[in-house]
Design a protein around this nucleic acid. Structure first.
Lengths: 213, 213
DNA sequence: TATTGTGAAGGAATTCACAGCC
DNA sequence: GGCTGTGAATTCCTTCACAATA
């Protein structure tokens, strides 16, 4: 099933976009679509969509297009989201709490099942049905709760420590909201989301009007 | 000051990273650095850093490197973050509230000064010192409060409506946390952050172990 | 000597364009 | 006729390598 050719990480990111678009079509009971229509829907080019899909196989019917249900299932399987993922959250400050309560994750099959913090006032409590443990206990707690993905929502200064704790607990996939580099063993994947950075990007384009394509 | 050559958007993103690294060095009272040391610090190559900077001018001293303070100021000016930006927030659910209370934005000079929602129970209240207005009032409220950047933190189904309201209020730069495309006039810039998408990216790499570089 | 700034080379991602299939 | 899948062309981005400089 996995192709020999190397897959651009930009392609992987776009698969998520396609899945979301297909979910929408499915909800609207649309049965078939085309690369042209999908492109219009998500704001990319038709050729790009066909190229992206071609990395993984042949899902369309020439002259007809794609079956929404079928393509959705194929892509969900490729992305590994045709299942539930249990997620561990490090840091239940404002951002962490928002993520805990955020519906969008659950809807896509990502369930926060355990949380960690350093604050003694929070440790031992249960928020939104999720129990909060001492981050120092992560190495003991994680192996027992089945979480495979970690989310780091602690201040930058504690990010490395939090990450080390999650890795010690066996996690190999981590999404970090903390600014700055985090060092991990080579078999651990870290994806960073820097919120202030996104605003700075906007600031740049707002400051340098017209530099944009 | 602005160069004639077209600047890759990847370069702009990295400028933020450099600014953050330089801030750290400055806090540690480091006076000079080099492309080599910066590269090590942020996890990129030295050549890339020099290329990125070259789009905007010549900031270094051959044989010596870069003055931390100077380079930081130059980049901050280029990014337009050598000033405060007033930000309007649409949607004060869990995510919106987290963004409202998030320190990271304020630290980098982005101040949420006004918020909007549809929920009558929230309209009129003041959270974290920020007054919440009816989103339908945005076109009247925004011109008076000076906000130039908007953040959309509403559910996907209301995103277009929220965005239209912000644009009607005169905003030209918008950061959206809602999944899906938002249609805006050509002079408005929208940057999207899709949280579930980032998790799906991790899911892919966790599922297809070893496909990674 | 150490390090920048940059032209040239190389690699990656996107777009084009069309043969082939339904 | 309509639309996919894909090699070729193109554009974009990164890395290399070195002349120029303090």
């Amino acid at each position: 099933m996995a192709r020999a050719k190397k897959i651009p990480s930009t392609t992987v990111s776009r698969l998520s976009v396609y899945v979301r678009a297909l979910q929408k079509l499915r909800n609207e009971a649309v049965v078939t679509t085309s690369s042209e229509k999908l492109a219009e829907q998500v704001g990319l080019t038709a050729a790009q969509i066909r190229k992206d899909l071609a990395y993984f196989g042949q899902f369309g019917v020439p002259g007809r297009g794609y079956y929404v249900e079928n393509l959705h299932n194929e892509l969900a399987m490729i992305l590994g989201i045709n299942r539930r993922w249990e997620v561990a959250l490090a840091g239940v400050g404002h951002l962490g709490y928002a993520l805990l309560a955020y519906n969008g994750f659950k809807k896509q099959g990502f369930d926060v099942v355990v949380a960690f913090d350093k604050d003694p006032a929070k440790i031992g409590q249960t928020w939104e049905g999720v129990k909060i443990y001492d981050i120092a206990e992560a190495r003991h707690v994680l192996p027992e709760c089945g979480a495979e993905i970690g989310i780091i929502a602690v201040p930058a200064a504690s990010a490395q420590e939090a990450c080390d704790a999650l890795v010690a607990g066996g996690l190999k996939s981590i999404l970090s909201f903390a600014p700055g580099r985090i060092i991990v063993p080579p078999d651990v994947t870290v994806k960073r989301v820097e919120l202030a950075m996104e605003l700075e990007w906007l600031s740049y384009y707002a400051t340098n009007i017209g530099e944009r394509g």
